[in-house]
Design a protein around this nucleic acid. Structure first.
Length: 208
DNA sequence: CGCCAGATTGACT
DNA sequence: GTCAATCTGGCGG
């Protein structure tokens, strides 16, 4: 299969931040639409960014793998305002999600893998690895590479104020360039696959 | 405060 | 392939 690098398709003059309304629709639809968008982090060291090549959709309490099942703040956040970051820790890694769902529903999209775009030197510093394929391929790896931690929890990603946002730089994916699979690492999944990836990207975290 | 499950990673056989 | 490090959040007491 031919390798697909999304950075070669960037039309940077069209860069625009994704508005809050982008996240107010079915969680799986948002997940699919996030592929090819750019996750941007502004740090004192400069801009760090990556193209989104792999995501997963998680729903509300009816989803056996959803953190909504846990109750507490995670559940409240999943059912709350869309467009906010949802950050939580597991096995000493930070997981980055964005809250996305229709009215009265709960749901969020997990960022699983990026194609590194800007600030690779800083990423290597944060990650302490030197192979580009290992910088941002995995949910725990990408948060570390971008310097994302719990302080971003519940921060809106549709404004630049907090140094973390998502942009559209005009990268378009055809329907046949998106692959689906079952979610990674969950003990109990739904009968429908809710993992989405860019077909042919060398920056997918694990084989579909 | 203690217990425990967990959307992972990296080291090692 | 196996496996454990090491930490967060929720919940019971």
């Amino acid at each position: 299969m031919a390798e697909l690098l999304l950075k070669e398709r960037i039309k940077s003059w069209r860069a625009s931040i994704l508005p809050k309304s982008f996240y107010l629709r079915r969680t799986d639809k948002v997940a699919e639409k996030l592929l090819g968008k750019v996750l941007v982090r502004m740090t004192p060291e400069g801009v760090i960014s990556g193209l989104i090549v792999e995501v997963e959709a998680y729903f509300g309490s009816e989803d056996p793998a959803s953190r909504a099942r846990k109750g507490g703040d995670l559940r409240r956040t999943l059912y709350g305002d869309v467009g906010l970051a949802l950050v939580y820790g597991i096995h000493r890694q930070w997981m980055l999600n964005v809250v996305a769902h229709t009215e009265d529903e709960g749901g969020a999209v997990l960022f699983r893998s990026l194609e590194p775009l800007e600030g690779l030197e800083t990423m290597r510093e944060f990650r302490r690895v030197f192979k580009d394929e290992l910088l941002t391929t995995g949910p725990g790896r990408l948060t570390k590479a971008l310097g994302i931690n719990k302080s971003f929890h519940k921060k809106p990603l549709y404004v630049r104020d907090h140094g973390l946002w998502i942009e559209d730089r005009g990268v378009k994916l055809r329907e046949d360039e998106v692959i689906r699979g079952f979610r990674v690492g969950v003990s109990e999944d739904l009968p429908t696959p809710y993992r989405f990836g860019v077909k042919g990207s060398p920056f997918i975290s694990r084989k579909f």
